[in-house]
Nucleic acid binder design. Structure first.
Lengths: 222, 222
DNA sequence: CGGCATCCGGGAAGATACTG
DNA sequence: CAGTATCTTCCCGGATGCCG
């Protein structure tokens, strides 16, 4: 009694002209936006993506990458020899999805149910700097920090009320932090001390840096 | 040989401290963000929600509303007699999700695959005004428009480079439009003429109004 | 090892019918 | 009108295995 259900090419559409609905068709599937998040600081390999997204299985990651590539958000490239490795990177348009991630993160951080003690990827940590930076509080502070999370290194610059964060080694940093993303989050957002020896250089700079971030107040529901 | 899979109360978490990941747990399920969108201009009844979301079945809507209520995003209220009707409305925090919807919509409108000829709800149309308003283009224009989509009526005001849109009857409007959301979208975004008799009042005002919106350029992928 | 196909169990989404 | 009950379909997540 199978009714032939002529599958209309992809049964699960919203059929809605609204841009938001179309956005959900593009990046609304489970894990999709987090894959984009992981690529926000540059291309990554399949395995490195998995490392930043515990719980995401290989077959689902393959599906998401296929979908994102078909949508024009992700591009697979082959690094030139001698690397000759396949990597996945965002297209310029994909890169412009950052405000979505930021707004969603800023809003959700106010949830009473948000648990900041869970694991955190390096990309999340760096993006949260951009999202939670308080230009007012920073004033005219000027500093360069290096962060090293295992293999991944980042440079964060604060100057003229602006914060920039990018992948890369810090050559002229005031302070270099070698730790886990979770430890940095605890120090910056919950004012916990960093482990011994994890902060190399001017510790006062790191303390000042930590002071220019603040989690938003929790939303009051009733 | 079943391995006891101690189901941790809700098998599908992201286990990620990132605010974005938590946001996806709150409003990342299918349809959830669109339900929030439909409530952006005020509380609605169950059936009216369905009307704005064709394709969403009753049982799924029930699940979404339960989830959103548990998360503190939606509140069910009972209107005072003689209405005595149950409605669903956003909490103050839920209302603050609008930037997420806007950013997602603005970004997705640049997708090469976006099809603006699909059906459109009244709430989507009104939100798109807020999202796509070009203050620069508006200059010092000042006008009041009324929109009527079947039962729903809205007032849109442009003044001092700002646009406001809210539910309500337009008493002092320069022009009142009675049409479908799709027809308005075609007129505003694709410069098509409105049907005969759908624009009551100063037609020049509506023309000027339509000129202060523009769809963003399509993203170039390669 | 990285990338991807395949099989399977569980659960969410979708359609329809039914109830107060 | 506002949901609930039920059934089917499909997606997600885990395991395994193939191939470069």
């Amino acid at each position: 009694m199978k009714l032939e259900k002529i599958t209309n090419k992809s049964g699960r559409r919203y059929d809605d002209a609204c841009g938001t609905a179309h956005g959900l068709e593009l990046i609304g599937e489970r894990w999709a936006l987090l894959v984009v998040r992981e690529l926000m600081f540059g291309p990554k390999r399949f395995g490195d993506l998995r490392a930043g997204l515990p719980g995401l299985s290989a077959n689902v990651l393959t599906q998401r990458l296929e979908g994102l590539e078909a949508a024009g958000i992700v591009q697979r490239r082959k690094l030139p020899p001698p690397a000759s490795v396949q990597v996945y990177g965002l297209t310029p348009w994909g890169l412009e999805a950052e405000p979505i991630i930021s707004e969603l993160g800023r809003w959700a951080a106010r949830s009473p149910k948000h648990d900041p003690s869970l694991p955190l990827s390096a990309a999340s940590m760096m993006l949260s700097f951009r999202t939670m930076f308080d230009a007012e509080e920073a004033g005219d502070a000027s500093m360069v920090l290096g962060f090293r999370f295992g293999e991944e290194a980042f440079v964060v610059t604060v100057a003229e009320g602006e914060l920039t964060a990018r992948r890369g080694e810090a050559d002229d940093a005031d302070v270099v932090v070698t730790a886990t993303p979770e430890q940095v989050a605890a120090a910056v957002y919950v004012d916990q001390p960093m482990p011994e020896g994890s902060v190399a250089g001017d510790a006062a700079v790191f303390a000042r840096f930590a002071s220019v971030f603040a989690l938003p107040d929790k939303a009051v529901i009733e």
